[in-house]
Amino acid sequence: MSTLKITDLHVSVENKMILKGINLEVKTSEIHALMGPNGNGKSTLLSAIMGHPKYKIEKGSIYLDDINILDLSVDERSKAGLFLGMQYPTEVSGVTNADFLRAAMNAHSDKPISLFKFIKQLDSEVEKLKMKPDLAHRYLNEGFSGGEKKRNEMLHMNLLKPKFALLDEIDSGLDVDALQIVSDAINEMRSDKFGAIIVSHYERLFDLVKPTHVHILVDGKIVKSGGYELVKKIDNEGYDWIREELHIDLKEEVGNYDK
């Protein structure tokens, strides 16, 4: 059992404070849904956890068990067990998906994975995700459709087997079938060795991947936490009820720094 503990996290970008005191504790075996209006800091939180250099930690701490991950570089955070499934995965020309994945798996392992074992694992996951077999051998994300990129993020997650996955709108751009496949991939990872924070705007993903916890993030703070009923409420009523119930002024997008 591992714990990802975020305490009083304040994060700025370009001198603008985006996160204003996030407190969140996620244990393996838990799936935390993170919802909220656009531009209020959901993606910023995930990127800050992963260590994107654009985001400056002004205050607070993030611990993975007893490791202060703010002391770690991005690759060290990955090797410690964090994985960020990105909303807009970057294209890297000239580097094949398979070569990259093998390098990444080797980085996570004490000894290099044999070619045979790697190919066997890769083929198995590609089949499960119903990806085109050639996607593994094409340049990383180059020319991939939106849906292919998201499945590819799942492929990376399944092969790297993180303790905690941070999934940023992993359902955007997916058709119904692809959403089912991606959801199956997340559900298959669910165990007492795996936890996740999932950002999404849509109930349909959380219907397929039932969260254990749901949080609403507004203006850089988690303003309400609960269970699956919050997903339903947001789907039915949007976010206006927050204004009335919690007396919070819902601002228009404060700026989307995640894209």
Binding site: P53, S73, V74, S78, F100, H108
Partner: peptide, 14 residues
């Protein structure tokens, strides 16, 4: 820089 970050986020050193 985004490419560098993406590769690092999978455990690859800088």
């Amino acid at each position: 820089e985004e490419q560098l970050y993406y590769l690092q986020s999978r455990g690859i050193s800088v």
